[in-house]
Design a protein around this nucleic acid. Structure first.
Lengths: 238, 238
DNA sequence: CAAAAAATCTTGTATATACAAGAACACAAA
DNA sequence: TTTGTGTTCTTGTATATACAAGATTTTTTG
């Protein structure tokens, strides 16, 4: 990216505040500076500040109270992107390991791909990877991901064992998840899945198919996952 | 839509457009009137119109395209409120019947209620109802709902077989769902659930626990559901 | 001292305006 | 015909301002 289009003020403010909440500078329950204070800090006006705060509220980072202020709430995996939670307590990052079974590689779209593809997507081809997630050493979630191979130079080089796919897409390719859809089933584990997740065949397994649109049209991400919900469950916020 | 002198312009516009999308006046793919046209129609200005359009976009009713306009998309059960979809085609309203097993009634909170309750909630007590949903005659979803009994006079009178719970809450009590959380498991059907959903015990069943906050603090809605995903699946948008 | 009232914080709603930038279309030039 | 190239739609970003209304604090009053 040679050309650097100026990022809007509201987005700079949004990113800064979001970062300060993520890194713990503002903690849950804290009151953000008032809109007028933020205006002075960023030399801008209330509508602009409010646009940033609206997006933070939409993602669940803050809750706004009329006459009081904006209160930081639990940072959530907004957008319906799912997280795994232990049945008793939250699972910290250190207890979550990722093993890449199939490294990111260029392939053709499967013939029986369950989503409709545009001509542009077909032409671009896709990147495929599969990962197995362990929670406290227990294989819990198997995920296959298909990413439309558009405008993602050298993407196969990234190490996705240590870093999150979405963080990587955002950080190095400025890809943001915008909207999506997910379908959910409870299925009986077949031979392949029961091997991967170390459960007996026939055990109830959570199965999901997800498609996610991004800020780049045609760059759509598909993810098919199987999750053992015996010890842990899947949780999302909206 | 009941218009009170205190209803903000942007909300009137939002409700009108949402209604026109819901009732099919605007169909999927249609282009809404431009922001300037809406300004003239409602004798207001662009920031106000844009506030209404932003909310419609946030709920997935429209997608906005820079330089082009606002395009109507599939009306979605935004906010992660789940809908049931057939595995081949969408399930129309006429194919979805609701049978109320336990009519809305005032009770005490269960002793083993899986969510933390505030003192105010405990004191207010709760309304309980349970419903079984049939898709094309097939019992598919069993749902138990607990509603904090705050500011809901004569709520037990409503007929929830024909009308949606959320529509009723909104229409008669001005309650809007704001944010929430859902936990998902795949479980084996026990005796009770297998009877309700007419499946063999042990069959994989989708189980969810959901809590939903509303525009009235302390009025929190809890819902516990079991879904047979053999023929149909659960789908949500984000 | 305690309760009521006022002042002053906060966010919510709204107007009016301006320019930037993407998309679509008409039209002239090659 | 095809290819640019403006013109004119559209939405995106931003400023400046005003008043309403909820929440909190300070001041006044009984």
């Amino acid at each position: 990216m040679v050309r650097t289009p100026t990022t809007p003020i509201y987005r700079v403010l949004f990113n800064n505040l979001k970062g300060q909440i993520d890194d713990g500078h503002y903690k849950k329950g804290d009151l953000l500076p008032s809109e007028n204070d933020l205006c002075k800090l960023y030399s801008t006006t209330r509508p602009t500040v409010r646009q940033a705060l609206s997006e933070l509220a939409r993602l669940g980072y803050i809750v706004r109270h009329h006459g009081k202020g904006s209160i930081v709430s639990e940072p959530k995996n907004g957008l319906g992107i799912l997280s795994i939670k232990g049945s008793t307590a939250g699972v910290g990052k250190k207890n979550l390991q990722t093993k890449v079974l199939a490294k990111t590689a260029k392939t053709n779209w499967p013939i029986d791909f369950p989503y409709e593809l545009t001509e542009a997507q077909r032409h671009a081809g896709c990147l495929y990877l599969s990962r197995l997630r362990f929670v406290n050493g227990l294989p819990t979630l198997y995920e296959e991901t298909y990413i439309t191979d558009i405008d993602l130079p050298r993407f196969t080089m990234h190490n996705l064992e240590k870093n999150s796919l979405f963080e990587t897409l955002n950080k190095y390719h400025k890809v943001e998840i915008k909207e999506g859809e997910q379908k959910i089933w409870a299925v009986a584990a077949d031979k392949a899945v029961s091997d991967l997740l170390s459960v007996k065949p026939g055990k109830p397994i959570l199965h999901m198919k997800r498609s996610m649109h991004t800020n780049k049209s045609n760059l759509i991400i598909y993810s098919f996952l199987y999750c053992n919900t015996e010890e842990y469950f899947i949780q999302d916020y909206f």
